[in-house]
Design a protein around this nucleic acid. Structure first.
Length: 574
RNA sequence: GGGGUGGUGGUGUAGCCAGGUUCAACACAUCAGACUGUCAAUCUGAAGAUCGCGGGUUCAAAUCCCGUUCACCCCGCCA
């Protein structure tokens, strides 16, 4: 007889009276000496199966030896549970299966940890080592299946919109821009290496030149940089590119896609269009380019205080602050720890005012004139029991610190808040003073900024759009440059003209053969899933993630390589 | 490269920053026995850790110090 006629979790009152066979894992057992209850688990859920000595004594004796996570097959009859013994916590709690035949398909050693979600989880180290057991937990199965549903829905949606799913190579040319590449040695060209793609960026643009017009791919991307809770060395993007579009087209496509996915997978309705703010406004109001907008506490400018008598504020590049409502009763030591927090962000200090009886209280209040104090209170709409925090420093430090304080003190509501950040600068200077693209060098500048490409480079804004969900950057894209002369101008502005001709010659060639206007976006599937599933780390939505040092604790990769294998590749370890 | 947190039976924690009659406690899991209606079963009993690893201080170290390693969080880095 077949392993199963039904799935455990799908049985219900409708099945009462039918004979079924079920296969699955022993989730838990309750042995009463007489009757034995087993919770039998398969992918669909759990059902209680009953071994009763009066039904079949031989099977009952066999059932005594069953242990957690043994794999068994049973045959039995679905019965309504006796009155008063129904379990409302179980989807199948109104019925049980009276067993008349049991076979053990496989035994299990005693477990390194319990396969349950109600007790505190073992250390992540242990979970990752025995990932096959960790993934048996209901919560993890939910996450991985959610991931499947989201990806399927995205494919469906894009297919309906006329997009083609096209694969691009994983063994590609290494280019100097961007993150560190993972390299793959070429046996056939000793001393030469492929790189794994950081994204399919160039190939999808080439597909536009090729005339496919609408492309997407669930693409694995690889970046050899340090890991974080939201960063793995390999991660998955929904990569999209489309011809004959502007920013509006891509943003509304993504809004429709996200709306469709959330409504059909999570049954959560999403308001579109998403709010849009420019990069400059985001930096001004939130101090960062991926603000969490689930709470207010926006940053206010206090530049007028640079002319006050308070020396600390004199000559500072920026003076800005936030108002943490209803925290005016904070203790002195709590304020001290906020000051420490600010210092850890790079600030030299943190000034504070409590609003009490409609006026500002602070050790530094005496340095300010009455009208200055009033103005501070007005800027923040200060009310009694508010706490106003002010940082005066270099602009970047002020932004970083206030942004961090905002997240530290904010109480975000449980919700999904989307936001577009548009018009990021095309270029930025890194700390050693070299100009680099803030997205990638194929991003189109705004048409109005073209004249500034050669002079005030940092003022040039780009046709970019990043999509933010609850303060997490879940995607970003841009309209690309489709004219070779403008592409060359950008390369020149970056001072990489010669290098680019060599590295990206094929793109410049492609653009010169009638490339259509085009643009696209990539959504970080792992991060999107992390927020959808309510996890704190993308590791919980990836079946087999790496540790912070880039190792896999289950397979113990990476490993050293035999000399023979190295020799064949023409590689020597230093 | 840097800052921080943690590592105590299989798992999660307590003990540690007052070093010694607590050289190890509690819960869960495991094993054995009992039990015919439980569902995180219950009851009784047993087994199981030289406290990540190495060194040092001390009459004495899970506890203090130094180093190291692993996991996690963060900065740098991530076009």
């Amino acid at each position: 007889m077949a392993y199963r006629t039904h799935y455990c979790g799908n049985l219900g009152l409708d099945d009462v009276g039918s004979s079924v066979s079920l296969s699955g894992w022993v989730h838990s057992r309750r042995d009463h000496g007489g009757v034995i209850f087993i919770d039998l688990r398969d992918i669909s859920g759990i059902v209680q199966v009953v071994f009763n000595p009066e039904i079949d004594s031989e099977t009952h004796i066999k059932a005594h030896s069953l242990r957690s996570e043994w794999v068994i097959k049973i045959e039995g009859k679905v019965s309504r549970r006796p009155k008063g013994t129904e379990n409302p916590n179980l989807k199948t709690g109104e019925i049980e299966v009276i067993v008349y035949s049991l076979s053990v398909l496989n035994e299990s050693r005693s477990l390194p940890f319990e396969i349950v979600d109600y007790t505190s989880l073992p250390k992540e180290e242990i979970r990752l080592k025995h990932r096959y057991l960790d993934l048996r937990r209901e919560n993890m199965q939910k996450n991985i299946i959610l991931r499947h549903r989201v990806i399927q829905r995205m494919r469906q949606f894009l297919d309906k919109q006329g997009f083609f799913e096209i694969e691009t190579p994983y063994l590609i040319r290494s280019t100097p821009e961007g993150a560190r590449d993972f390299l793959v040695p070429s046996r056939l060209s000793p001393g030469s290496f492929y790189a794994l793609p950081q994204s399919p960026q160039l190939f999808k643009q080439i597909l536009m030149v090729s005339g496919f017009e609408k492309y997407f791919q669930i693409a694995r991307c690889f970046r050899d940089e340090d890991l974080r809770a939201d960063r793995q060395p390999e991660f998955t993007q929904l990569d999209i590119e489309q011809s004959f579009v502007d920013e509006e087209d891509i943003m509304s496509l993504i809004e429709d896609l996200i709306k469709d996915v959330f409504e059909n997978v999570l049954n959560v309705s999403i308001k579109t269009p998403f709010p849009r703010i420019t990069y400059d406004i985001a930096m001004l109001r939130y101090g960062c380019d991926k603000p969490d907008t689930r709470f207010g506490m926006e940053i206010e400018d206090l530049g007028f205080l640079s002319s006050s008598d308070f020396n600390v504020f004199k000559g500072k590049e920026a003076i800005r602050g936030i108002n943490r409502k209803e925290m005016g009763d904070i203790s002195r030591s709590e304020i001290d720890s906020l000051i420490e927090f600010a210092k850890s962000c790079g600030a030299s200090g943190l000034c504070w005012f409590k609003v009490e009886e409609n006026s500002l209280q602070s050790p530094i209040a005496k340095f300010f004139k009455d009208d200055e104090l009033r103005k501070i209170k007005d800027v923040f709409l200060g009310e009694d029991s508010d706490l106003i925090l002010i940082v005066a420093d270099k602009l970047k430090v002020v932004c970083d610190t206030l942004s961090a304080l905002r997240l530290h003190l904010g109480k975000p509501k449980e919700d999904f808040e989307f936001l577009w950040i548009v018009e990021a600068p095309l270029f930025e200077y890194d700390e050693d003073g070299t100009l680099k693209p803030s997205h990638h060098p194929f991003t189109s500048p705004r048409d109005v900024d073209l004249p500034f490409l050669s002079k005030e480079k940092v003022k040039v804004k780009a046709k970019t759009y990043d999509v933010i969900l609850n303060g997490c950057e879940i995607g970003g894209g841009s309209i690309r440059i489709h004219k070779p002369d403008i592409q060359r101008m950008v390369f020149s502005a970056l001072g990489i003209k010669e290098l680019a001709e060599k590295e990206f010659g094929f793109l410049l060639d492609g653009l010169s053969f009638g490339a259509p206007p085009h643009g696209g976006i990539a959504l970080g599937i792992d991060r999107l899933l992390m927020v959808m599933a309510g996890c704190d780390s993308i590791r919980d939505v990836i079946a087999f993630p790496k540790t912070q040092t880039g190792t896999c604790l289950m397979t113990e990769s990476p490993t050293q390589i035999e000399n023979m294998q190295l020799k064949e590749l023409g590689i020597k370890i230093l």
